[in-house]
């Protein structure tokens, strides 16, 4: 019998179970886009059939990192930029756990960029939500990797000389097998996309546009938005890498011209990292974590397996 009976438990799930009794109310600024992420995530959980005890939510640092405080589940609020390496190891240790990571644009595309690239490349079966508000909020309004070129802030007084990063294209080039963008102002689409991302068997990257009403007042509120799947103006195949890439490039460029394009941009069913690793014999078939709770587990000994070659 599994030592983890929360995993795969079959019962009615109410999204209110994901509201923690300790901190039921979030402390984000009024009008902050982060509320929508929280709401959409809670809404997605009954849809994917997961209970709080079988979900591990790993976050980084910033306003986005507070998600852990307001979402009831197992949580690991890590350090700046490092939610992905913590999250993906937990998935390897116990593939039955639903692993979700979240962070901001500075956290994921700046300080944690290397982990973003490599976690996408490895295609771990997990979801990564990036709260993209084009600004460093919690540290009071510095220019971020997604701030538009020319963005003025206290640390870029003459305006940023850098082009913003292209997060969707970066995810695609790195190897993510599901790439989408949604916006805080579009809660139903957001919940649907998050549910799809969670159910996707591979690395699902969701760039979530979250307006910052305090430090990025000049920025658009991401309205009006267009869902590219709903619009007749866009025709492309989300499973075609080249078409997806071209679409992403356009979407990323248009954002800075005031046009908010959202939707699913890429989907591919290549095997997840866990599957690949099991296929090479480098990962056990049974969840590794189970072994530590199995009183009858047999533990191999160095003396039996390894010493002979030293004699």
């Amino acid at each position: 019998m599994s030592a983890f009976t929360a995993i795969g438990e079959d019962r009615e799930i109410d999204q209110n179970e994901f509201t923690p009794g300790i901190e039921p109310q979030a402390t984000w600024c009024p009008g902050c886009g982060d509320f929508s992420v929280l709401k959409a995530l809670k809404q997605a959980m009954p849809e994917v059939g997961r209970t709080p005890d079988e979900v591990l939510l790993c976050t980084g640092i910033g306003c986005s990192g507070k998600l852990n405080s307001y979402f009831e589940s197992y949580g690991f609020h890590t350090i700046h930029g490092r939610s992905l390496p913590v999250a993906r190891a937990a998935k390897l240790a116990n593939p039955g756990v639903e692993v979700i990571a979240a962070g901001g644009d500075g956290d994921g595309y700046g300080i944690g960029g290397n982990h973003f690239m490599h976690t996408a490349r490895e295609n771990h079966d997990m979801t990564y939500i990036v709260f993209n508000n084009e600004i460093f909020g919690l540290t009071k309004g510095q220019t971020s990797p997604t701030s538009p070129k020319g963005h003025k802030s206290k640390t870029q007084p003459s305006g940023s000389a850098k082009d913003p990063i292209r997060p969707l294209s970066l995810a695609l080039a790195s190897g993510a097998s599901y790439v989408a963008r949604t916006a805080a102002v579009n809660p139903n689409q957001a919940a649907d996309i998050l549910a799809e991302a969670i159910e996707h068997d591979g690395f699902a990257h969701v760039d979530f546009l979250t307006q910052c009403p305090t430090w990025n007042k000049d920025a658009r509120q991401y309205v009006p938005y267009v869902d590219v799947q709903q619009s007749d103006d866009f025709e492309f195949d989300v499973t075609d890498r080249q078409e997806a890439g071209e679409m992403m490039y356009e979407v990323e460029s248009k954002l800075y011209e005031g046009e908010v394009l959202t939707g699913r941009f890429y989907k591919n069913d290549r095997p997840s990292y866990g599957e690949e690793k099991r296929a090479t014999g480098e990962m056990p078939e049974e969840p590794l974590a189970e072994r530590y709770f199995d009183e009858d587990a047999q533990w191999e000994r160095a003396a039996d397996e390894l010493i002979e070659k030293h004699t």
Binding site: L56, A89, H118, L288
Partner: peptide, 29 residues
Amino acid sequence: LPKFGGISEQVEDEIAAASLALGASHAGV
């Protein structure tokens, strides 16, 4: 480790390396 039913991960840098060990341990390994 594969012979012993375990997992080894060569990763992108040492920040990730230590963080992965924490993640695995957090999950019970």
